[in-house]
Amino acid sequence: MAIAGFSGGTAKGSSKRNSKGASKSALKGDRKGAIVAGILLIPGLLYLALFFLTPLVQLVVTALESPDASGAIGAYVYDFNVQNFADVAVKYSLQIFRSFGYAFLATIFALLISYPLAYFVGVKVRRWPLLQRMTLVLVIAPFFISFLLRTVAWKQLLSVGSPLLGVLQNIGLVPHDGYFIGTPAAVVFGLTYNFIPFMTLPLFTTLERLDGRLIEAGADLYANPFKVFTKITLPLSMPGVVSGTLLTFIPIAGDYVNASRDFLGSSDTSMIGNMVDQDFLSNQNYPYASALSVLLMATILILVSIYVRRAGTEELL
């Protein structure tokens, strides 16, 4: 991106000049610009090589290891064991399916909750900047508290005997002798809650720029509010919807806190992240943990590519 920016700039400059000498110097300038760009890129590239590429390569290498002859816990040797990928895909198929299912549901719920919220903050209270800032702070403030603490707090708030669970029982969502924590619903609830700001903020930034005159014009042309929303507001806010859904879906698919047995989950709710955690830390099966991580990354990459291609990336943010 940076290179394109630099060379694009100089090319534009050169086209304006017509003499031979000028184009020669523009060429020189091109080369100079490229060198400067190259130098400026070095720190970034080094950073990426060190902290992104090296671990990634290491991860793939580890994913291809085989158990050593002793069969002892944590004992693996370098190999080219592609079978690991097939093994984890089969062994953890339910968890993989569940992760993306939970991520899909939680992203939809987060969108349904965040859109009106962002609309309210970005459009409705726009006329009162102080109120707008205050409501924005209200959206973000809970997230100044640690992710873990908030999740444990929900575990308490929804445990057996808690007033909140009582309400859920009274309206028939949870059986009277039943429980909520440890169920898939609890995990999806936790995921939705924890990732709402990642949905709200991008939506807010696009809705904040929404031109009110267009809505007025739509109404003037006899569109009902629903039509105004589907024809004007929603299309204009699509960049926010796309980036919001990406920012929630990707981390949710890899989350392992909410679904953990110690937080909101149980044996019934394990996601990919929990399996990576378990294979890495408890079973010390590094090849499986790595293969599963690579698989998770690849799946997300494919899903996101399809999604972005369909939704378009213009003005993503």
Binding site: S70, G71, K91, R261, S266, S267, D268, M275, Q278
Partner: peptide, 19 residues
Amino acid sequence: TPKEDNEFSTAWSDVISGV
């Protein structure tokens, strides 16, 4: 034994995590 440790631990964690 190291081998049992590996096998049993994996079988155990598979059961408790619903795998």
